[in-house]
Amino acid sequence: MMYDANPRSGAPFAGLQANAGMLFMIGAMLLLPVGDTFAKLLSETLSPVGVTMCRVLAQAAFLVPVAYLLRHRLKGAMFSPIIAVSGLLLIISLTSLISAFAAMPIATAIAIFFVEPLILTVLAGVLLGETAGPRRLIAVGVGLIGAMIVIRPGFSDYGWATALPLISAFAYALNMVVLKVATVTRSGLTVQCGSTVYASLGLVVLAVVWGKMGGMDLVPQWGDTTTMFYIIGAGGAAAISFVMIAEAYRSADATALAPFQYLEIIMATALGFLIFGDFPDMLTWVGIAIILGSGIYVFHREGRSDTAAPRRKRASR
């Protein structure tokens, strides 16, 4: 950190950094659903496993030059058992969410996925011993009620597929706990790169097994330029989103950035309507509002408590 000769300049500089962080987060939250949209388009011709594999491989291809340019931020062991666990959880989370995109509107899947901060609050208490107060636990319960309204077991048009975003959210929240432990001795960029490599290798193996079992196509047909464009778009959006999120957390406090994460649902709804003609019904909007309100309350309590759940530094999905 550079020495500031003028002490009074510190506050304005910190303010500019925070504003930059918020802009990075806004950009990332608007870009993430673009990658999800490409993934949904890919699911029309490739299996969810194939989509996930192509997306992660494309993401890795984009991350390699980024990691080289930011190599001074690499710290600690990139390949170890705990990073491998992170890679496995990334596979589960992404495959489940992409499978959900194939079965339902993107906005609905993401709305259900957004119970993740609430699940993280519970897991942090169980696995990390980070105590959550009764108000926060009540907010978790209310948020899960909102998720049930969106899912509407037994009444939803999407059947058991509505459980897929919940599986994705649980795996993602568990991965956040793993990352919290891993980043004690490693930088976030190191963990992200290592996790992406492990996920890429695991998905290639899974794809081979899936193909031998007679699953859907795993890779695009030779000369299918449209599908290749979708793959590049999905991987590029994911990689750029990660870099922007990482820069956001370097520049601003997590609690200041948290509310901007909900822009993702707005963008997902807009893209789902414009490209696929999907629009959530009124009951789904009620559930979304409950989930968002509960999540914002949890982040609000986190900002006021020293015993907060681990702050959510999201790896790109």
Rank of each mutant, 00 (worst) to 15 (best):
Y297D: 14
Y262R: 01
Y297R: 12
T225L: 14
A268M: 08
A258I: 10
A171F: 01
A237T: 11
L166S: 03
V197L: 10
P259R: 01
T190N: 14
M228H: 10
G295P: 02
A270K: 02
S187V: 01
L189E: 15
F273D: 03
R250H: 05
L271N: 05
N175A: 15
G233W: 10
I275P: 00
F273G: 04
L274F: 06
K212M: 14
A207W: 00
N175S: 15
W160H: 04
I296M: 10
P153K: 09
L179F: 07
F229A: 05
M228F: 10
G223H: 07
A171N: 05
V181C: 01
I275M: 06
M228Y: 13
G236E: 02
T284N: 08
Q261N: 05
P220G: 00
G202F: 00
I231C: 05
E247D: 03
Y230A: 06
P153A: 09
T183L: 11
G277P: 02
R152T: 05
G194M: 07
F170E: 12
G236R: 03
G159I: 03
D278V: 08
L189F: 15
L206A: 09
I296K: 03
V184T: 12
W160F: 08
I265H: 08
A207Q: 01
M176P: 09
K212V: 14
L201D: 03
V177S: 08
A182F: 04
Q221M: 10
G223F: 07
K212P: 09
S200Y: 12
N175T: 13
T185M: 12
F170Y: 14
V286M: 05
S251A: 13
R152A: 05
G223K: 10
A173N: 07
G214H: 11
R152S: 08
I232C: 12
F155M: 14
V219D: 07
L257G: 09
T284H: 07
L263F: 04
M282H: 08
M282T: 12
F155A: 15
I240K: 04
P220E: 02
A163S: 11
G188Q: 12
T183Y: 06
Y172N: 08
W285I: 08
L283K: 01
M213A: 14
A171V: 02
K180M: 06
T183Q: 11
M244V: 01
L166F: 03
Y249I: 08
I275D: 02
T185Q: 13
A254F: 07
W222K: 12
R250S: 08
A258N: 09
A254I: 04
I167F: 03
A238M: 12
W160T: 10
F229D: 06
M176T: 14
V208D: 09
L174Q: 12
A270R: 02
K180V: 06
W160V: 13
A256D: 13
D253I: 12
R250Q: 04
M267K: 08
A238C: 11
V208F: 15
Y297G: 12
I151K: 04
T225D: 12
D278S: 11
T185I: 06
F279E: 07
L189V: 15
F276L: 01
L174A: 15
I265C: 09
V205L: 01
Y198Q: 11
F273P: 05
L164H: 02
W210E: 13
D253Y: 14
